[in-house]
Design a binder for these strands. Structure first.
Length: 1079
RNA sequence: GCCGGAGUGGCGAAAUGGCAGACGCGACGGAUUCAAAAUCCGUUCUGGGUGAAACCAGGUGUGGGUUCAAGUCCCUCCUCCGGCACCA
């Protein structure tokens, strides 16, 4: 430090420069002040300071799971976006609800506890502290007074309470909504409803006709025993106990997700995993399948997310059909979307898990069943997880069951096979196989030599068949038939002749002389006949010589490979066209080969054929129309410690009872050891808390039972999703102890459309967002929330990636071990070997993780916020480039220098008169930034601000160290600061205060702009000749079409180019350009 | 395999069918400075052309199409990213 010999330094030229240290001082000071003054504490309706005249804006971030690793640069991306919107909306006069909390139950904390023995509550609380500290350093305008975590007993009390609402509700199909189960009991007691033997509810007034024409055992409530009543009601509940097959790993003592099981062994440790059926709580989300799919279509959500949800729900329309077993009692029920192909069902396939398979294995065995082979196949198939079964789906496997079923349409016995390409989880775990019209069935049929029959043809194929079966003798002649067929197909397609007209068309062809050219010759679009006849030449569009129909069809016929007329006829007679031509025909068309003495659908189009088959099935009682969904009920039990306990206890007979509402929450018992015990039997973790587990009706309490009744608590816990399903509701009224939120708070903040803007990652596109919608709809049905959907507008921020470096052998080099000796060339420091720069997710192993704390230390929070928003479009994934941040920091420095004297730290003297150019630029800026914020286009808003600050003091070269504050008046400076405020709130507050204001700018009105100021008196237009810019003209902004045209044509360069040409057309686009078409 | 999304300078990117590359980074040149940092100014798609300009030609993954006009709309193919995967 001491250097007496050096000459004295001149005074530090910029004692008051905006740098990281100053940014840190400004930022923490303002954060303290906002906290101290409660600037962003938002009152609820009815509370002091609440202004009911303002509209509301509820803006929510997906709350984070606070991991021990702390905040990641991905987190603040979405949070900065919502913060900008919220600050903007406050300035636009909205009451803004902008809360933050913690999704804190979950596996990582539990696994950490297993390793270290530290209680998850402790590690989770520490992680929350870290997260809160890190978030607050960004200066986000959250109302921290509303903060909570899902692990707070005061919160999960209400999670349990909502679970009990599901438990106490049923889905009323007639009303198409959930209702309290007490209503159902009432209706049953009054005798309004009765119960069919299959457990369905029907109005007692009209007992339904039997499916099989036999009398039906519809029963009334009073005819049921206590146990029957209980069993019936339990089957109706939205929360019910069901049996699910799970992956149980005895060694780890836990259930594993499919993705954690690899080749029948656990991913962690490689221990054996068994498929075990387990009784668990399920939530009946399937009851809402229709509404969840329908309502998804109307939301302002990303198209991709809506599509994913709709496909996940997977609605399909079809029929449920019973195939009676041949030679024994019983039937196999299948679901099909193509009942019209029933005549082509030449075998059946049941899943290895199908109940019938157990019967076969248990029974004496059918005459031709190889029970041993079946046993082996089934055991092998069941051991494999669904994922693995699907992985090698190409090669079909299966085994004959020894049984036959009767195809109800043809009356023919067809074999029943067992194969794992049929899944128990969808439909009824059994299919009717129609190999001519389903690729999978075809592959299976070919593998095992099963019959394949066409029952649907495209119109062209049908015409071909008509020709094969009905062509008059002369047309069949060697040498003639191909041309005749080509002409016939040409005529049918070009004239769009429907099947009833085939006879007449044939007569037309037959009446021609053999050598006569085809009079229908005309253009044919290859795509048209490609869709009509897949597999034909030209189906890919290449062979379609535009032009001659006959040639086209000759090509097509040749590709199909018929060698003679007899060959053609034979293929159709054997109903084997599709297989020979191109594999399974899965499209719609016309039914064929589909007649019996009971039913004929030949010639019907697919939709009508479906209707006819369904009508017939319903008439004879062998099937019915059915809408099916891929969506399955939600498995809601976890054999974990760190989750919400269920408010349920079981009595000695195993019947479940709800804990009294008034006694909630059921607290999570303390455990000392979080290691799951090794066990062959799946056992939930909480069973280890023996004192807690065993209780009585008085203690639990369950007031519907005698007080001394012994009870065993439900020892499973709820899944991670439970807490995140409704947190947005609690934020409306987080400290309410009488309700999960007051109706008034919900009515105000949720309104009729819910959250106004919800931002979070697209990885939650299906599960969280679908589960939350489901809970919301249940609460809506029960009258507990005012709107049918949780969020009107949803947006997914993109992922922030980072650079990673690959050696030539593709192995990865940590980012901090790489040098860039020259631009674009990267070498590994240790070896000097060149490496390739790639873009990858941030991960510890790549050592390319950016820590927000470090970035803030280097540049300040305002700079980091600005950079994250400036990187690119919010929804795009984009790489973090440390080199680019400095641009945003310099921008803030320039803003500072524009208004503050760096020598003294005091405001620079403002311009005394407004420069009209600056004023116009400011209006343009205001006009751009507002709408850009509304559409979340922060990158372009920031670019506009950067552009603006170049205006004042620019032009005239007032540059140099002096900057150019003399270019801005006080009023202009203030308006600019307000525009900047949502993006860099700390700096803006500091400037605002230095400009002489003592109150926060958070509620200052957003500056207005005058549209008249956006208009220039003259505009420069580009002049194009034939679409190429050849010059520019300057015309009055309000110049009319004719004068603009005149000016353009008078432009010397234009005159030169159109010399000797005729001006055919002049296009004038006002304010943009003129295009002269000459030739 | 299927369904999404995306391919634009050296890099991040911008562009209601209307002058491609705004804005930022980097690079290069200059000013300031004893010097540096910082700051300020200028240049920066490619090729041709010029002392410098003007100007000319080409250019938004590929090939076609629609249009007075295409990064943008339509079709083909290629590549990358994300999701789903025998759903009867």
């Amino acid at each position: 430090m001491t250097a007496p010999s050096t000459p004295p330094h001149p005074p530090e030229p910029a004692a008051h420069r905006y740098d990281a240290q100053r940014a840190a001082r400004i930022e923490t000071a303002w954060q303290d002040r906002w906290a101290r003054e409660g600037t962003f504490v938002t009152p609820n309706p009815g509370e002091p300071n609440f202004d009911p005249s303002k509209p509301k804006f509820y803006c929510l971030d997906m709350f984070p799971y606070p991991s021990g690793a702390g905040l990641h640069v991905g987190h603040p991306e979405g949070y900065t976006a919502t913060d900008i919107i919220c600050r903007y909306k406050r300035m636009r006069g909205f009451n803004v609800l902008h809360p933050m909390g913690w999704d804190a139950f979950g596996l990582p904390a539990e696994q950490y506890a297993i390793q270290t023995g530290v209680h998850p509550a402790k590690t989770t609380r520490q992680a929350i502290e870290t997260f809160r500290r890190q978030l607050q350093r960004f200066g986000f305008s959250y109302d921290w007074s509303r903060e909570f975590a899902t692990i707070d007993p005061d919160y999960y009390k209400w999670t349990q309470w909502i679970f009990l609402r599901l438990y106490h509700s049923w889905y009323d199909r007639a009303a198409d909504r959930a209702r309290p189960i007490a209503d159902l009991v009432g209706a049953l007691e009054r005798g309004d409803l009765a119960i069919t033997p299959s457990g369905d509810l029907v109005p007692a007034s009209h007992a339904p006709a039997s499916l099989l024409g036999e009398p039906v055992g519809v029963r009334l409530w009073h005819e049921l025993s206590q146990d029957e009543r209980r069993a019936f009601l339990d089957r109706q509940r939205l929360a019910f106990v069901g049996e699910q097959t799970v992956n149980w790993c005895p060694r780890l003592g836990t259930v594993l997700a499919n993705e954690e099981v690899i080749d029948g062994r656990s991913e962690r440790g490689g221990h054996p995993v068994h498929r075990r059926a387990l009784k668990q709580w399920m939530l009946r989300i399937t009851a809402y399948a229709e509404r969840l799919a329908r309502d998804a279509a109307g939301l302002d959500w990303p198209e991709s997310t809506r599509t994913m949800q709709i496909e996940w729900i997977g609605r399909s329309e079809g029929a449920e059909i019973d195939f009676p077993l041949h030679g024994r009692d019983g039937s196999i029920r299948v679901y099909t979307t193509r009942p019209d192909t029933i005549f082509g069902a030449s075998f059946m396939v049941v899943a290895p898990e199908h109940p019938l398979v157990d019967e076969i294995l248990a029974g004496p065995g059918e005459a031709d069943a190889d029970v041993e082979a079946i046993g082996r196949y089934v055991a092998a198939a069941r051991a494999r997880a669904d994922v693995d079964r699907m992985a090698d789906a190409k090669e079909k496997t299966g085994v004959f069951s020894g049984l036959h079923a009767l195809n109800p349409a043809t009356g023919t016995p067809i074999p029943v096979w067992i194969a794992d390409y049929v899944l128990m989880g969808y439909g009824h775990g059994a299919i009717m196989a129609v190999p001519a019209h389903d690729e999978r069935d075809l592959a299976f049929a070919e593998r095992f030599g099963l019959p394949i029959r066409d029952v649907v043809y495209s119109r062209t194929a049908l015409a071909m068949r008509h020709f094969a079966l009905h062509a008059p003798e002369p047309l069949r002649a060697e040498g003639r038939w191909i041309v005749a067929l080509a002409d016939f197909l040409g005529l049918v397609t070009t004239e769009s002749i429907e099947p009833p007209g085939f006879g007449r068309a044939m007569a037309t062809i037959a009446s021609r002389r053999a050598d006569e050219p085809d009079p229908t010759t005309c253009h044919i679009d290859p795509a048209t006949y490609a869709t009509e006849l897949p597999g034909a030449a030209g189906a890919d569009g290449t062979g379609g010589r535009r032009g001659v129909t006959r040639l086209t069809w000759l090509d097509a016929i040749e590709t199909l490979g018929f060698t003679s007329f007899d060959d053609l006829a034979e293929r159709f007679l054997a109903a084997g066209f599709h297989r020979a031509a191109h594999g399974a025909f899965e499209a719609t068309g016309f039914a064929a080969n589909s007649s019996s003495d009971q039913l004929s659908i030949d010639g019907l189009r697919t939709p009508e054929a479906k209707e006819a088959v369904i009508a017939w099935l319903e008439r004879v009682g062998l099937g019915r129309r059915r809408v099916n969904f891929k969506l399955r009920d939600w498995l809601f039990s976890r054999q974990r410690y760190w989750g919400e306990p269920f408010p349920i206890a079981f009595d000695a007979r195993g019947h479940h009872h709800p804990i009294d509402d008034a006694a909630l929450p059921v607290l999570l018992p303390d455990l000392a050891d979080f290691r799951p015990p090794e066990s062959d039997d799946p056992a939930p973790m909480l069973a280890a808390a023996r004192d807690w587990l065993h209780t009585t009706a008085a203690e639990a309490p369950v007031s519907t039972l005698p007080p001394e009744s012994p009870l065993r608590r439900e020892a499973n816990t709820m899944p991670n999703w439970a807490g995140s399903c409704w947190y947005y509701l609690r934020f409306c009224d987080p400290h309410n102890s009488a309700a999960f939120a007051s109706p008034e708070a919900l009515a105000y903040w949720m309104g009729s459309t819910g959250i106004d803007l919800y931002i979070g990652g697209s990885e939650h596109a299906v599960l969280h967002l679908l589960y939350a919608r489901f809970w919301h709809k249940v609460l809506f049905d029960l009258g507990l929330v005012p709107c049918p959907e949780p969020a009107a507008r949803l947006f997914h921020q993109g992922m922030i990636t980072s650079y990673a470096y690959q050696r030539s052998d593709k192995s990865l080099v940590p980012a901090d071990a790489v040098d860039e000796p020259s631009p674009g060339r990267f070498v590994e420091r240790a070896t000097g070997e060149p490496v390739v720069q790639t873009i990858a997710k941030m991960s510890k192993t790549l050592k390319n993780v950016i820590n927000p704390d470090d970035v803030i230390a280097e540049y300040g929070a305002d700079t980091m916020r600005l950079y994250e928003m400036y990187m690119g479009p919010l929804d795009a994934s984009k790489p973090w480039n440390p080199r680019d941040i400095v641009g945003c920091h310099r921008f803030l420095q320039k803003v500072w220098r524009l208004l503050i004297d760096e020598q003294t730290g005091t405001p620079r003297p403002p311009a005394s008169a407004a420069d009209p150019a600056v004023e116009r630029a400011l209006h343009r800026l205001i006009a751009k930034v507002g709408p850009d914020i509304e559409r979340l286009a922060f990158n372009t808003a920031i670019a506009a601000m950067m552009e603006f600050i170049k205006t004042p003091g620019g032009g005239g070269g007032g540059g140099g160290g002096a900057g150019g504050a003399e270019g801005l008046t006080r009023d202009q400076a203030e308006r600019f600061v307000l525009v900047l405020a949502p993006f860099a709130p700390h700096l803006a507050e500091e400037l605002w205060s230095k400009l002489g204001h003592d109150r926060t700018l958070a509620f200052e009105p957003w500056p207005a702009f005058d549209p008249a100021m956006l208009r220039e008196s003259t505009v420069e237009l580009a002049v194009q000749v034939m679409g190429k810019v050849r010059g520019h003209i300057t015309v009055p902004a309000d110049a009319d079409h004719a004068s603009v045209e005149r000016a353009a044509l008078a432009e010397p360069r234009v005159r030169e180019l159109i010399e000797g040409k005729t001006v055919r057309k002049v296009v004038v686009v006002p304010g943009k350009l003129v295009n002269i078409v000459a030739g």
